[in-house]
Design a protein around this nucleic acid. Structure first.
Lengths: 210, 210
DNA sequence: GTTAATAAATGACCATTAGTCATTAAATAT
DNA sequence: ATATTTAATGACTAATGGTCATTTATTAAC
């Protein structure tokens, strides 16, 4: 039946439209200050319809973050190709993440909110988050690269790759958080975000070298 | 006048009582699911009175976090004394923070919430946060130790101490976040929080060594 | 000791907003 | 043309952060 298929397609489109509206509203007003009515207006739908497609505001938040993670993932995988070995690929991925943050700061903040401590704040289980983190995020690729790096004797082998991978990921998130929280500190200390990132990569990659 | 002093003292006590009530409620139900009425009940006061002492729920949240930071700070400074040189003192401080997280997980989460990205979520300026971070938190002490370590040629001198200090602090926060979010992952990968912490210190301290 | 003035505490009330559901409208099948 | 199923609506509810006129307790003044 072609009708069923078309309907399914339309449903998907509506769903997508709602997510886009939510994204726009969340990013412009912040999650807490966005109301479901705002999103409904933006999506040109009634509030009731939103709840036909998404169980809660929190779920909508997660969907927005998921889309952001997928976008980040495409950026980082593309960047990884530019590196010549595992360590270089990792560095490129890191830089790409920084660039991503510069280009889409709101997207990045949504990702950090999802994967950080406040995932509990939302009505999500850690399993939900893990699904997203492993299926669509960069962590999976980082892990592969670390394993490759260990094999090539570029990365120390006395620590399980999965730990190194997570450490790299979390540390990158933390430096981005640092920059976005402490912005006003920079002038005072004659620092720049770039210097911070530079030092970060220096310190971190130095730490994992074999 | 003795009366003015007594009144001031009583005011302080009431204030403290409210913070304690808020702490109890926040930690048992989570910030978002705690209502001001809950806190008022716990404090045996009316809701109106809470607002006589604190401007908003967010401010109350910050006060709770501030108290937690002070507590953490006493733990870490005591631990630092056990180390024989700057690097060892830093390691001891790190361990003490982990212990703190084990003993007072809710306190630790409040700290991370305050210093992490969602400080913007609350109605606080980054200046508020910085005040807390530098006046009462461990970051100040970490900085001193890093400076000492650089002087003693234990820590690399090519990166500004303030950056190293912040990196250490943020990385520690991130590993704690990691453990608290990904708990369920551990069985699966035959990992334990201890191994994660161990690797963390290994990687991070290795990174800053001169 | 009584009254006036000041300070502290109260809780009914308001405004906002996440989420629901009976009703309506549209699309599809008969 | 009619019945049935599906999609969409928006008025409504419940919960809750925050306010403020009123009440209660404390201190000062006579």
């Amino acid at each position: 039946m072609g009708i069923t298929e078309r309907k399914e397609r339309e449903k998907q489109q509506r769903r997508e439209g709602i997510i886009q509206a939510a994204e726009k509203v969340f990013f412009s007003k912040g999650f807490d200050h966005s109301t479901m009515d705002d999103i409904a207006d933006e999506a040109e739908l009634s509030k009731g319809t939103l709840y036909l497609y998404f169980k809660s505001k929190d779920v909508l938040h997660m969907e927005v973050a998921k889309k952001a993670i997928i976008l980040l993932n495409t950026c980082t995988s593309r960047a990884a190709d530019k590196g010549t070995n595992a360590l270089e690929k990792l560095r490129q991925m890191g830089r790409a993440t920084i660039d991503f943050f510069r280009t889409y700061p709101d997207h990045m903040k949504a990702i950090i909110a999802l994967t950080g401590i406040e995932s509990g704040r939302l009505g999500l289980t850690t399993t939900d988050v893990q699904g997203i983190l492993y299926d669509v995020s960069s962590v999976g690729m980082v892990l592969e690269l670390v394993e490759q790096g260990v094999k090539d004797k570029l990365i120390r082998s006395d620590i399980p790759p999965v730990l190194i991978a997570h450490t790299l990921w979390m540390q990158l998130m933390s430096v981005i958080q640092f920059v976005s929280v402490e912005e006003s500190l920079f002038d005072l200390l004659e620092l720049s975000p770039d210097k911070v990132y530079e030092s970060h990569f220096e310190l971190v990659l130095n730490g994992i070298k074999s």
